[in-house]
């Protein structure tokens, strides 16, 4: 019951309502969250139709503000959820710090690095958990700064007993461990500690959590995705992406040899494009993590999830 209650009282802010934003909104509204505020000042563009299923199916809306024209189908999903829309410019809104204060959780989609860092400073000041996400065709990411979080996991007993203080993975520590023998269950209390998002771009954590073999087999998508966050979302050439990614590899202390031609080519084609199956996966994954975070059940993503549609992998790194 506590779980349901926390969910039903949570106020969530979503910044930008593109393809992945719509998936998140759909999932959270179905999940029965208390209220969702959406900030988006964009107008409906032709290319939006490739992956945004709430758009009105009529060309006369192209060029009009998006939010007022898609609010109805969202409300229809679950009339118990309060939906509020803001067509203000996000960067101007950032100056109005009080606006952000009232939310229990903030989700930023398709932001650039500078926006993420400014937003993250705010969320750290007010102690608000932050998720950011975005995609490039079949690739995508979820980055989280939930500051600090304690959750309980109840699961079937696995052979090896856990010890208090044990690190399950980097920044995920067992705070308490109980065994419910008759029911063959174990109950883990896990504490997650997060780094500010600004620090992940220069984190030296990767070599600490991956074996040499894993480092060698690391997908190009991690450094490329992080470096694309640093661009202003204008289209880059393969060479520009390559240079940025090489720089990112050196920031992260990994070999630039992992950058493959195939990935550079795919990212050149797919940079900043929306694709609905990718959004469905990211939106499902992020909404699920948010719901569990609010319920304090299951340990959340800490802190960089990469969706690699070429390899069908979704590794999570703690940067």
């Amino acid at each position: 019951m506590g779980t349901q209650l926390r969910l039903r009282s949570a106020k969530v802010l979503i910044i930008n309502l593109g393809s992945v934003g719509m998936e998140i909104v759909k999932n959270l509204v179905l999940g029965g969250i208390n209220s969702i505020d959406i900030v988006d000042d964009s107008v409906i563009k032709e290319e939006d139709y490739a992956a945004q299923f709430f758009l009105p199916n009529d060309d006369k809306f192209i060029g009009e503000l998006k939010l007022p024209n898609i609010i109805e189908p969202i409300k229809e999903l679950n009339n118990r959820v309060n939906i509020n829309i803001h067509t203000d410019n996000f960067n101007q809104l950032l100056a109005d710090k009080d606006f952000f204060k009232k939310f229990d959780l903030i989700i930023g989609t398709e932001l650039v690095k500078q926006e993420i860092i400014e937003l993250n400073e705010l969320t750290r000041t007010f102690n608000i958990p932050l998720y950011v996400t975005g995609l490039h065709g079949i690739f995508g990411y979820i980055i989280t700064d939930l500051i600090q979080h304690v959750s309980t996991v109840e699961r079937n007993t696995i052979n090896q007993a856990k010890t208090i203080g044990e690190e399950l993975s980097l920044n995920k520590v067992v705070e308490n461990y109980q065994v419910d023998k008759p029911n063959n269950k174990e109950i883990l209390t896990i504490k997650d500690t997060y780094s500010p998002i600004s620090s992940i771009f220069t984190s030296d954590n990767l070599p600490k959590q991956l074996s040499k073999r894993q480092l060698r087999k690391l997908s190009s998508s991690l450094p490329i995705i992080l470096s694309l966050l640093e661009s202003d979302r204008s289209e880059l050439t393969t060479e520009e992406i390559n240079l940025k990614a090489i720089q990112m590899c050196s920031n992260l202390g990994i070999s630039p040899d992992i950058l493959s031609k195939e990935y550079l080519q795919e990212f050149t084609n797919q940079q900043f494009t929306e694709f609905v199956p990718t959004s469905a996966i990211l939106g499902g994954c992020l909404a699920q993590d948010v719901i569990q975070f609010l319920s304090k059940r299951e340990s959340p993503i800490n802190n960089t999830l990469i969706l690699d549609g070429l390899r069908s992998e979704m590794p999570i790194y703690s940067l």
Partner: peptide, 16 residues
């Protein structure tokens, strides 16, 4: 059934 799991699986069903 959990709606988010269905959403994720439907994405992979398409992608794969």
């Amino acid at each position: 059934a959990i709606a988010t799991t269905n959403a994720i699986i439907s994405g992979f069903s398409d992608l794969q």
